[in-house]
Design a binder for these strands. Structure first.
Lengths: 326, 326
DNA sequence: TTGTAAGCGTTATCAC
DNA sequence: GTGATAACGCTTACAA
């Protein structure tokens, strides 16, 4: 921070007006034109910048939002952070980032730190039970923390259905669902529910293996091997609950000598793109990251928070990426 | 921000001590034990949290650093942001993120916004000429902005050398260097310099194609086709200045019917990992992202900035990733 | 050692 | 419409 930045007082003196007048100019409040010009010129001359900290102290508005995420290294979180930052910038707000590594203690300590920072609100992608401040606006991504805490997520259930329908449409007759994720229940669990819902309705067999974070991925390989007899897999269509898992499963399948998508078609979930560019890792259900970010920001900054929806599910879309027959 | 959070005054009243005493307790200044306990208990009872904005206003220290990056979607920037955030957290600082899309106007406006926020310093990954504040600590990543502005980067020149040496060691005899990047000169330009330096010293032929951001990537394909005659490429070793480019070039090579690494070996630069995990895209020179982040933070927060080095080049390492013969 | 009081730069309330 | 003046919550001499 700075030694001797000019203050409003300096500007007032330079412009030959009162302090209050300067404040009004910078807040867009009605001021005589001649005064406004004098102030603006004086400010420019001095290189004056409003001190947001003083403003925040006085007015209680900080124009800052905290984003709490497990980390920035996973492309989905990175993309979300990027879009949240952009959406906030568009609304003249700043983004403070906290990374938690999904650890409950760090997540809670972030909440506490944020509290000290007097941000205007929090957007959180957290996976553990939290103790929240009643009156600090909070919007959760992908996880329902309570009836009074708005949650924004992709339409995970619909995406699961979409995956099943697509695989069936592409000629699959024996499906499987593979999942690994947080032990704490969250919206993404619905991906499998949607998928199996379609299978049941259509009377299609659907094997499934659901693992928890930290479980050995080799269990998936074993599962596949168990269902691999005489050079033939029991499934011709597999839905993985994330693109990462789909990628890993694809490698396992090829290790078994199976061809994707000729022998077995594969659909992932998330819409992760290589190098943050355009190329997908494989066929996938794409989350509307930008809309999710914008929606979360809109809800968070809405004037009237009492009308905030408890849950907003945004539509996903299917994108072919080479692991399905198209 | 909040309606009626307890203040130090409330805590003082609750604890039955003076305001100044409460402040001292929270600043670790010497206070009688009995008082300290009374204050701590009162604070806990009230759920008191220091207001960092008031503290910053008064003391001029905000414990906040701004990170300015082109975006969070490219995995290198995301990884850097992640590590910077972690390094700052370890030192009890927060990170404010600004994304610029590498646009000069946005980059400058970020600098201006940051100025209002009275941060303790800026870590910037910017690509355009900037007008900086003399007395706002700034550390640049990968780009030398001026003699008085410390720059932290990977050892790009050394990495380029390393790539050449590795390819030669692996039996290559005809090398090529492919590059695309910012028009504004920066430290990463040295990757090619280091590579060609070794080639010259060893008397090895080295073709090169250097493009600028925005140029059509098809030019690379054409370049390859020009050097592809009778099913044989003029090179058996190619160094690409980024992992992204290496990935694209690999696809082009395979499109030509060439096998990597059997027919031509490929080394990239950055050390990008799929899904932010462990798996590399190919053989590459790995940037020490964590050390770069920590170094930048250390320099930025150093008590005595007058002794800050103008440039710190951190050692890179080679990692095989399947596009070289190992 | 503890308490008191003067600001830090803004905003908001009033008289003028 | 303008201009003193009192907060906002905290730190820090300085006085007790």
């Amino acid at each position: 921070m700075k030694g001797n930045m000019p203050t409003m007082k300096d500007v007032a003196q330079e412009a030959g007006v009162a302090l209050g007048t300067v404040s009004k100019v910078f807040n867009g409040l009605p001021v005589g034109d001649s005064y406004r010009i004098k102030v603006e010129e004086a400010a420019k001359r001095l290189g004056y910048q409003v001190n947001q900290y003083a403003r925040g102290l006085r007015s209680g508005k900080t124009f800052t939002v905290a984003l709490i995420v497990p980390g920035l290294e996973h492309p989905f979180f990175a993309a979300l952070a990027h879009q949240v930052c952009a959406a906030l910038a568009q609304r003249d707000h700043r983004m403070l980032v906290y990374v938690t590594a999904s650890r409950p203690d760090i997540e809670q300590s972030c909440i506490n730190m944020v509290r000290q920072n007097k941000v205007d609100g929090i957007i959180g992608l957290t996976y553990n039970p939290l103790e929240l401040d009643e009156d600090l606006p909070f919007v959760s991504i992908d996880r329902r923390l309570g009836a009074d805490i708005p949650c924004v997520s992709a339409d995970n259930f619909g995406g699961g259905r979409m995956a099943a329908e697509k695989l069936l449409e592409l000629g699959c007759t024996r499906l499987a669902f593979l999942h690994t994720g947080s032990v704490n229940p969250n919206e993404t669990d619905q991906r499998g529910d949607g998928f199996e819902c379609v299978c049941r309705a259509q009377g299609i067999s659907c094997d499934a293996l659901r693992l928890k974070d930290g479980d050995d991925l080799e269990l998936f390989r074993e599962f596949l091997r168990t269902h691999f007899n005489n050079g033939r897999l029991d499934f011709d269509g597999i839905f993985c609950s994330t693109d990462l898992l789909a990628w890993q499963v694809r490698n396992m399948l090829e290790g078994l000598g199976l061809r994707v998508p000729e022998d077995v078609q594969l659909i992932g979930f998330d819409g992760i793109r290589r190098f943050g560019g355009q190329e997908l890792y494989g066929s996938t259900i794409v989350q509307p990251v930008q809309r999710m970010a914008e929606t979360a920001v809109d809800i968070l900054l809405a004037k009237d928070r009492s009308t905030a929806p408890a849950l907003v599910c945004l539509p996903v879309s299917y994108a072919p990426g080479g692991t399905t027959k198209e």
